[in-house]
Simulated assay, not measured.
Amino acid sequence: MDQLDWNQLRAFLHTAEAGSLSEAARRLGLTQPTLSRQVAAIEKRLGVSLFERIGRSLQPTSTGLALLEHARSMGAAAQELSLAASGHAQAVDGVVSISASDMVAACLLPAVLQTLAERAPGLRIEVVTTNSLSDLRRREADIALRHVRPSEPELIGRLLREASASFYASKDWIRRHGHPRRAEEAAALRFVGSDRSGRYLDYLRAHGLPVGEHNFCAYAENATTAWALVRQGLGIGAMMDEVAASCPDVQRVLDEVPPVRFPIWLLTHRELHTARRIRLVFDLLAEALASPAVLSPSGRQP
């Protein structure tokens, strides 16, 4: 088989990442019919279907996903070659997307991104705030911060550290209701929950708290919102200890319940890590988040 035409491969890559021919054509400065012909040509050359239509979008087939990783690697290499040829190999610019939970995004990332802006002013960072596990294989993000060990073999990850979380209430709530310390006291307390499906209830029970649905006064899936409800005095909630330490209006309760320990993993795709801009952001995040942050009362690193 002849070598693949780079223009055809690039058409496939941008269509896969954009999810539509029209958007990919706009990004490449081509007409949609021209781009469509290039995609059809690479499918004919390979003898496979690379896309399937789902609703109004195009999604790579399993064969397309396998080819996509190689196309991204070639795209990153082409960009590096272009930079070197133009004498700007050390220039780092472009967009890097980082996926993180809402609380990590709000409290831990801002100071890191400020440092990054000073080191590489040409970079533009997109923060993808989500409490779900972003699928790096489909480029929902270039880099992800997760609290579970990665299972995908095509990802590379670095365990930054173990963090801890405990139960907290506002000082005003404690003045009104007392300071509960033992797990069995939870049966008579009000909590701010994260969902109505029973997942958070199971989480509390797994940590020895004898609670039921009647113990919840409010729910908020968004952790930043749930924490605001706790600080307002609605009830007890769990929070990362280093974040809670920056809030003078809250205090740890249920002190005899051991803190929850959880990992902080930094992940990227094996192929993406070869891109200079992603490698720079990955290494800086690893350096900055490897130890507990010292946050100001506003929730930001001083």
Rank of each mutant, 00 (worst) to 15 (best):
R231F: 10
G193Y: 13
Y200K: 02
G198K: 09
Q251A: 13
I236W: 00
R276C: 03
W6F: 08
L136C: 04
S197L: 15
W6Y: 06
L68T: 02
V104K: 14
S246C: 01
H14R: 11
E287H: 09
A106E: 12
A18S: 15
L229Q: 14
L201P: 14
L266Q: 05
E17C: 11
S166M: 12
R10V: 14
V127L: 00
L229M: 14
E242Y: 10
Q59D: 12
R279D: 15
E43F: 13
Q38Y: 12
S296I: 02
W227A: 05
G178S: 00
R53L: 02
M1W: 10
R277W: 03
S86P: 00
L68A: 00
L145H: 00
A286R: 05
G299M: 01
R190Q: 13
L113W: 07
M239I: 06
I264G: 01
S298N: 14
L28H: 00
A286P: 04
G87F: 12
Q38A: 12
L83I: 01
A163K: 09
E80S: 08
R199L: 15
P180F: 06
N222T: 04
D283H: 11
L201E: 05
F12Q: 08
V192L: 13
P259V: 03
V230F: 02
L155T: 14
V92P: 03
P263C: 05
F216A: 04
A66V: 10
L83N: 09
G94F: 04
E256N: 15
V257L: 08
L189P: 03
A117M: 10
L108N: 09
S298I: 10
L30T: 14
S73R: 11
A290T: 15
V48T: 12
W173A: 01
A18N: 12
P259E: 04
A120Y: 13
F191N: 06
A186R: 10
E154V: 10
G75K: 03
N131V: 04
R261G: 00
L295W: 01
R161K: 00
P150L: 07
V95N: 07
S164E: 08
G237F: 14
R56C: 00
V253W: 05
R138D: 03
G55T: 05
A183D: 03
L280G: 06
E162Q: 14
Q301A: 12
E213K: 15
A24G: 08
R119V: 10
